[in-house]
Write a protein that binds this DNA or RNA. Structure first.
Lengths: 265, 265
DNA sequence: CGGGCGAAGTTGGCTGACCAACTTGACCAC
DNA sequence: GTGGTCAAGTTGGTCAGCCAACTTCGCCCG
């Protein structure tokens, strides 16, 4: 039943940085197939065994690929029945979340930025805690206005530890993407914790974003670490309402999002 | 060694449904060990092989357990080096996100709720789309005020498809947790898509929450499905600022969060 | 015609094994 | 010292196989 594509063991994998790992290629292929509707809106996927044979890999590898899709909320999965297609793809991508520039470009908008201030000063207690520094260490503090196609949408306050800050400090003020430059200098961003809430605009926010003082802003705070677990930035972004929304998927299997009381720091 | 608890195959295990699966128990044990600081703040975990021997399981099972911790942002993981402890535990838990009641209780607060209205009416186009219903199907619409220790914090507007709505409709108005009651009636919540942004309070919001009209509220919209992929609710929660914050972890490996332009529905 | 039972199909979970890719640190040559 | 090389340690990825738990559906019996 159903046209198997007999002589297509595996191959090409096209765009998206062709993940070298087999299971990534399988996952990418399945994601593609799902998003083009090959299995229908709420259709059922082939059995793991069938997929394994189709791709010429072991069932374990197929399961690894399916775990990726499940984590992305593309398919369900429960014992006893075939997997069911849940939704049609999601934008996802770690870098889109991390880098304003990357995110903007992926939407076809032109990102802009203006460095308002950059200074070096001793870290306070909270900053030492977040960036895991010894008391008295110096941090670099930046304040930037971010724009989409010229219109201001976000104010970004970032605190860098010394080893990252020195690199940021010597960057020209008109560099659009700090993240990309830092990557080229060996600073990698791999893990991030985000907290999202609402705050009111202070004087700086109002002046830069062109809103009233006290106007509501959507705030995203994040602490980012490199592969070794060392903090590389602690940032606070304040968005004008209506410009962004944050979106998450979670399931009983893989939950990453949580709701907190606002008693934090 | 140390596989203690000989006569405790599985069971109750405190709140969080202690998964009977081996890898879940290993994950829970490691989570506990990490949060008590057994490996230090930024310390290194034992090698997979060592853990496997320690727990008397195969390395594959240990890897499965570690994948859970990695997804929760507790440890890093890269080829060549031991895993590094990232942060001290996180509240997580799917049900805390899903159920206001569950979340409140986990914080030691007393959740309350008052059903403001419940009506049945034909679904509009957007609702049919979200709940995957045929045009003209009837939906159940509820409006509830949610409180923490008596103080109003959130207004919840939920739209249920017929098969769930009929159950909700016959619930007493003073039932605190709809979710738990529905679970007892065989309605399971397993997957959810969330979108978080800022909106302004309308007349109903202002009256119920005791804020000004036009005051900013943190909005969470979610669509929840059961294990078969069938939508079971489409809800919109509006929180008073300062009462909650949403928190997410993501990494290059597992990304679930994304940032969108606010052009949606 | 309805309901219960059982078999087939399917995913969850676990094991043991193997190799590749990468990191780290020690050692050695310059 | 300085720098390069090498070996050991560790995680990533893949495979093949086995059993348990669960869902579905058809069949049979009352």
């Amino acid at each position: 039943m159903q046209q198997d594509e007999p002589g297509r063991p595996e191959e090409q994998a096209t765009a998206t940085e062709a993940g070298g790992a087999l299971y990534r290629r399988v996952a990418a292929d399945l994601r593609e197939a799902i998003s083009t509707g090959a299995y229908g809106e709420a259709g059922r996927l082939p059995a793991e065994g069938a997929l394994a044979e189709q791709y010429g890999v072991s069932r374990g590898t197929v399961r690894q690929a399916l775990a990726v899709l499940r984590a992305d909320g593309l398919v369900t999965s429960r014992r006893g029945t075939r997997r069911v297609v849940l939704g049609n793809a999601r934008v996802q991508s770690f870098s889109e979340l991390l880098s304003f520039t990357h995110w903007a470009r992926s939407m076809g908008e032109e990102p802009g930025g203006r460095l308002e201030s950059l200074l070096r000063r001793p870290a306070d207690a909270a900053e030492c805690e977040q960036l895991r520094l010894e008391p008295g260490a110096e941090v670099y503090v930046t304040l930037r206005l971010r724009t989409l196609s010229g219109a201001p949408v976000m104010v970004e306050r970032t605190i860098y530890p010394p080893h990252v800050g020195v690199l940021v400090a010597q960057l020209p003020a008109d560099v659009v993407s700090h993240t990309e430059h830092l990557r080229e200098h060996g600073i990698l961003f791999t893990d991030a914790d985000h907290t999202i809430d609402v705050v009111t605009a202070n004087g700086d926010d109002a002046r830069l974003l062109g809103c009233r003082r006290g106007a509501p802003l959507l705030r995203e705070r994040r602490r980012t670490t490199d592969p070794t677990g060392r903090p590389v930035e602690w940032s606070q972004d304040r968005y004008l309402p209506g410009t962004v929304a944050f979106s998450v998927h979670n399931s009983l299997a893989t939950s990453a999002l949580s709701r907190h009381a606002r008693a934090d720091d």
